[in-house]
Nucleic acid binder design. Sequence first.
DNA 1: GTCTATAGATCGATAGAC
DNA 2: GTCTATCGATCTATAGAC
Lengths: 187, 187
Amino acid sequence: MPKTKTSKEEVLNKIIPILRVRGVQNSSMNELAKACGIQKSHFYYYFNSKEALIKEVLSIVYSYFNYNIFKIIDHKSLTLPDKITKVKHLMEKLFKASDGGCIMANTALETIHLNPTYKKEIQSFFSDFIKGVQRLLESNYTSQESIVLAEQIVQDIEGGILLTQVYTDPKYLNNAIARMEKIILKQ
Amino acid sequence: MPKTKTSKEEVLNKIIPILRVRGVQNSSMNELAKACGIQKSHFYYYFNSKEALIKEVLSIVYSYFNYNIFKIIDHKSLTLPDKITKVKHLMEKLFKASDGGCIMANTALETIHLNPTYKKEIQSFFSDFIKGVQRLLESNYTSQESIVLAEQIVQDIEGGILLTQVYTDPKYLNNAIARMEKIILKQ
DNA sequence: GTCTATAGATCGATAGAC
DNA sequence: GTCTATCGATCTATAGAC
């Protein structure tokens, strides 16, 4: 048997899409390992446990989101409409229904009443999500208005991700994103 | 050993709260049976499989919601504010975060990409949810406006249920319900 | 109570790069 | 030779089902 050469990063990037679609509980170590072309025993060389594996996955997703959204928002030479366009693209990528929607929301609902391990990371994700939207609002709204509106927009989007998956219809997420744009631009 | 006399309805009512909090995949037949004080083998007298069990659970939740929301909305002698108050109470009961939030949303995200069995029931639930809100809107909005606003309100609420669970803070769901009230009353 | 399948997890053996 | 990334076998617990 030829040994398959892999790395921890490679493995993580391969399993994120699977966990997003199938969920944490519905993805076995065996299944995840097979998808990477390695034995599951080798997973325990990279990670101490399934829990440790999931923690690293969520950490990577969080870092990716955090880095990209604030890179857009804090960009010096982008106009507000340009920033909105880029943020929309980021969301469409991260929340695409056919790819399983929002892995943070999925994992939250799957684990939050059972296992507090992932709670911090999930909270950080949503805090940054809200904070990012809030920043986009602050040019047209007061700080107080911005925070409430940002929460509303994030709730609308997450609910839209849910309905888009329930009905296999992108309109719910698209409507939420369109509403976000209108609110930010105060149209 | 004293034999515990049970009924199918009794069993279903006892396991709904567990499934709501722990999710479908995280609830074993053994655990559910124990919570009812019966042997799990007795479960297979009531239900052919776990899948059949979950289907009945979702069917009961759907029927309960459907019956109650339309009883309120179609009531002849209730004012609009009274209807809103009653709908709010129904939602607070069905979506309470400490009881696991919305079992339909939880089950949707847990199963929709794996098992189409529950899809119809979940879709019906959300269709009636949106239709109920839409009916409340129709006295102050056009039919076209009502449907889009109803979808927005349901998304806001479902996102609020998510964030309320993520942060263990009722404000997100409460804010969504308050926004619903303002929109319906056009305040 | 028992069956079979599979879950997560561990271990010793070893192929291959240096 | 050593080291470490990988494998195959195996353990125990528990799942759904009868």
